[in-house]
């Protein structure tokens, strides 16, 4: 006991490792990288959620609205609604269009349906593609003249173009440009050229012939239906909605939600 006493009293030399006690600011600096990660993950989650909302809510809504508007016409007499059901041709053209989408890579089938996906995801993807098909059918319903010689001529032009496209090498951008051109031209033909050739509705047959002889002749010869001018506006929005939907459509849904899992 007596031998240890001088060592305790002599405190001028301490044999120990120096430990620095960090202050508050230093602790904050050390933790800050982790704090920066948390909002980043949350932002990523929000982005992923937005992608899901876009794919499973917005896209079907856009396509189904285009489908709703595609067959809607307004009567020339009283602006009442006329719902035109699509002709068989429209279904055939829409099927060819979907094949074109698959071929060009606009839609990668194995990225939309897979055994590795959950059933809900496969079903939701099927709903999106069904709405795309419905919109495509109704788009042709919108752009094809309703009856008579113009119907057959425009239907043949559509068929010719789509048939040629089936055997051409396409990338997504070229396909979208081609379709934009095709639909734009068809819209101009139907809602600007043919609509202006159609005579307005008149109760007096003789008077209408005297006032609009050329239009009456074209209406009779080409069997043109008389619709209100509002029909063109509605169909314009139907075509624009459809093209917006195509622009927003992802080629694959495989990567959706992958980041979150990681």
């Amino acid at each position: 006991m007596e031998s240890e006493q001088p060592d305790i009293d002599d405190l001028s030399v301490v044999d120990a490792v120096l430990i620095e006690e960090p202050n508050d600011s230093e602790i904050m600096t050390a933790v800050s990288p982790r704090q920066a990660i948390v909002p980043k993950i949350e932002k990523q989650k929000r982005n992923e959620n937005q992608k899901h909302y876009l794919l499973y809510f917005v896209l079907p809504f856009i396509f189904l609205t285009a489908a709703l508007l595609g067959g809607l016409r307004l009567s020339a007499a009283d602006n009442s609604f006329i719902f035109l059901k699509p002709a068989l041709f429209c279904l055939i053209f829409a099927s060819v269009m979907l094949v074109l989408f698959f071929r060009s890579g606009l839609i990668q089938l194995n990225g939309w349906f897979s055994e590795s996906f959950e059933m809900a995801k496969n079903a939701a993807n099927a709903a999106v593609l069904m709405s795309l098909f419905a919109a495509t059918v109704q788009l042709f319903n919108s752009l094809l003249p309703e009856q008579g010689l113009p119907f057959w001529i425009v239907a043949f032009c559509f068929f010719w173009t789509l048939w040629n496209n089936l055997f051409a090498d396409f990338d997504t951008k070229k396909l979208l440009q081609s379709l934009g051109g095709l639909f734009g031209l068809a819209f101009v033909v139907k809602y600007l050229v043919l609509a202006n050739l159609t005579a307005p509705v008149s109760e007096n047959w003789l008077r209408s012939i005297i006032e609009n002889p050329a239009q009456e002749a074209f209406t009779w010869l080409l069997d043109l239906p008389r619709f209100s001018a509002g029909t063109g506006y509605i169909q314009f929005f139907a075509v624009v909605l459809y093209l917006i939907g195509l622009f927003l459509l992802p080629p694959t849904t495989e990567n959706l939600g992958q980041n979150r899992e990681e």
Binding site: E48, N49, H52, Y53, L55, Y56, F57, P60, F61, L64, E118, A120, K121, A123, A124, A127, V128, M130, S131, A134, L256, G257, R260
Partner: peptide, 16 residues
Amino acid sequence: EKYIQILGVILSVGYG
């Protein structure tokens, strides 16, 4: 994600 998909199907079918 799963709820969004199921709700999406229901809404699409309803609208259709």
